[in-house]
Deep mutational scan, measured.
Amino acid sequence: TIDDAFRAIERAIQAENEGRYREALKHFLDGGEMIVTAAEKEASQKVRNLLLHKGKEVLEWAEHLAEWILE
């Protein structure tokens, strides 16, 4: 659900702030994927587009974090 997705993102932010970057990455990926999944089930085109945009933002952040971890 969207609530689960945002809880995962909150955990990711907390982990990132505490320097637990790999854990943060996992939570960002989980949250982003949950948002995209919820968007695919959404009946309203406007809400679907907003959710897809937010999911994409979260997944892009996860990608940047992963690249930073690997440096």
Rank of each mutant, 00 (worst) to 15 (best):
A62S: 02
E63Q: 13
K46A: 14
V58Q: 00
K54V: 15
I13L: 07
K41H: 10
T1S: 10
L29E: 02
L52R: 06
G32Q: 07
W61H: 11
E60N: 07
R22K: 11
R22F: 09
E40H: 14
R22E: 13
T1W: 11
E63I: 14
L70E: 12
G55I: 10
E71H: 10
W68D: 01
E18R: 09
A8Y: 10
A62V: 07
A39C: 12
W61V: 02
A24I: 07
W61G: 00
R11Y: 08
L51Q: 00
E18S: 07
W61I: 04
G31P: 01
A8W: 10
I2H: 04
F28E: 00
M34T: 03
L65H: 00
E63K: 15
E60M: 14
Q45N: 06
F28T: 01
E33A: 14
A12W: 07
A62Y: 04
A5G: 05
N49S: 10
E33R: 15
E71Y: 11
E57A: 09
G32F: 15
E23P: 01
I69D: 01
A39Y: 06
A15C: 12
R22M: 13
L50C: 14
A24T: 02
H27S: 06
N17C: 14
I35L: 15
F28R: 00
V47A: 06
H64L: 10
E42R: 04
K46W: 15
M34E: 02
V58G: 00
N49T: 07
W61L: 05
F6Y: 10
L51S: 00
D3A: 14
A39N: 03
I35C: 07
L59D: 01
E71W: 09
R48C: 12
K46V: 12
N49D: 10
A24N: 01
A24K: 01
H53R: 15
L51P: 00
E23D: 12
H27L: 15
E33W: 15
E57W: 12
T37L: 13
F6T: 04
M34P: 02
N49M: 10
A43L: 12
M34S: 05
D30W: 15
K46M: 11
W61A: 04
F28G: 01
G19N: 02
E40G: 12
F6W: 09
K46C: 14
E23H: 05
Q45L: 11
Q45C: 13
K56V: 06
S44I: 07
G31Y: 12
L70G: 08
A66P: 00
I35E: 02
D3I: 14
A24C: 10
R11D: 05
R48D: 01
I9R: 02
E57D: 08
E18P: 01
I69T: 02
L65F: 05
E23N: 04
E42C: 14
F28N: 00
L52F: 08
L70M: 11
H27G: 11
A39M: 09
N49F: 11
M34I: 11
E23T: 04
E71A: 14
A38D: 02
A8L: 15
E67M: 10
L59W: 06
D3G: 11
R7H: 07
E63G: 07
I2L: 13
Q45D: 11
I69G: 02
L25S: 01
V36A: 08
A8C: 13
H64N: 07
L70P: 02
K26W: 09
V58L: 11
H27P: 01
L59K: 03
V58E: 02
L51Y: 05
E10K: 12
I69E: 01
D30H: 11
A66G: 04
A38H: 06
M34Q: 06
I35S: 02
L65Y: 03
E16W: 15
G32C: 13
A62D: 00
A38G: 04
E57F: 09
H27W: 15
V36R: 12
E18M: 09
L51I: 03
A8E: 13
A24Q: 03
D30F: 14
R22S: 10
E40Y: 15
Q14N: 08
K54N: 02
G32W: 15
E67T: 09
F6I: 09
D4P: 03
R7N: 06
K41M: 10
L25T: 00
E16K: 13
Q45W: 10
K41A: 09
K41P: 02
D30V: 13
N17D: 04
S44F: 12
M34R: 06
H64M: 12
M34Y: 07
W61Y: 15
Q14C: 10
I9H: 00
A62F: 10
E67H: 12
L59A: 05
R7M: 06
L65W: 04
F28Q: 01
Y21C: 09
E42P: 02
H53K: 15
F6H: 06
E23L: 04
K56R: 12
H27D: 06
E60I: 09
R22N: 11
A66D: 01
L25Y: 09
I2Q: 02
R11Q: 10
A12R: 01
A12E: 00
E23K: 02
W61N: 02
G31S: 04
R11L: 13
L25F: 06
E10C: 14
E71P: 05
D3S: 12
I13E: 02
T37N: 11
L52N: 06
K41I: 07
D4I: 08
I35Y: 07
E16P: 02
E63W: 14
I35W: 06
K46G: 07
T1A: 10
K26V: 06
R48F: 05
A66W: 13
E63T: 13
K46T: 12
E18I: 06
A43S: 10
L51T: 00
W68K: 05
E57C: 14
L51A: 01
M34K: 08
A38Q: 07
E71C: 12
G32N: 08
E60T: 08
I2K: 03
H64F: 06
V58F: 09
K41R: 11
E10W: 14
K46H: 12
R20G: 02
I69Y: 05
I69K: 00
I69M: 09
E40C: 15
L50R: 11
A62W: 06
K46E: 13
G19W: 04
G19E: 01
